[in-house]
Design a protein around this nucleic acid. Structure first.
Lengths: 114, 114
DNA sequence: TTTCGTGCAAATTATTTGCACTCCC
DNA sequence: GGGAGTGCAAATAATTTGCACGAAA
């Protein structure tokens, strides 16, 4: 948990394992998954599934979107005003969770191209 | 492709396979995946990754959000005005793709509970 | 003949599960 | 002792890949 909070990137389970196993040599992947699932159940951690094949984890559970640069792979957070999204079609729906994922090229990579 | 366009649900690769294999007994899963990937590459089909473990496919490539009912599993489309989402933080970013996923309980299931 | 779509079966990979072990009350 | 957290190794499951076959051009 401390790792997720301090490192504000959006690591995969494997990245978490690889980083932490250096300090805790006995750590196993199972424990990483177990712990993550507990944290998710407690609503302290969110899953970011911006990539199809692997889940990423985020200790920031406030409403915000994720942008993934298709060139450098960096994932950026951005604030969103979800209330601005008109959703008349979901008028009588109970919305528990909102995920907004954008993909494209970030400003840094765009600058490097020119 | 015809299947995806007529059936407006958001089937998984396996659902597509299972449905089509009845009409085309020689069909293989490989061909389903091959074809889907061609269609995705041609920007005719979008992947909906509202579920972690399996990809769903959508022949509607216009900007719209997806709502998944956690009770009945139905996936609803809803129109979104993506321009209404203020994204000053992505000012100089090139955005290629926008995915909006909501989860909760749909009106129909809410009605059944009471 | 060469190319392309197809299909089988094996490989891949993130995640889950079964089970055994240890630590701590 | 008993429960919880841990870790190994095997299982699971969606998707990809290697390869070979057959039709079409």
């Amino acid at each position: 948990m401390e790792y997720l909070v301090t490192k504000r990137s959006h690591p995969t389970a494997d990245e978490i394992y690889s980083s932490l196993v250096k300090e805790m040599p006995t750590l196993s992947r199972t424990t990483v998954y177990n712990t993550l699932n507990i944290l998710i159940g407690a609503n302290i951690v969110r899953v970011v599934t911006i990539e199809e094949h692997e889940a990423r984890y985020d200790a920031d559970i406030t409403d915000h979107g994720h942008f993934k640069c298709e060139r450098c792979g960096t994932i950026y957070d951005f604030r969103i005003d979800t209330d601005a999204i008109r959703t008349e079609e979901l008028k009588n729906f109970k919305i528990n969770e909102k995920d907004v994922y954008y993909r494209g090229i970030c400003a840094k990579c765009l600058g490097n191209i020119e």
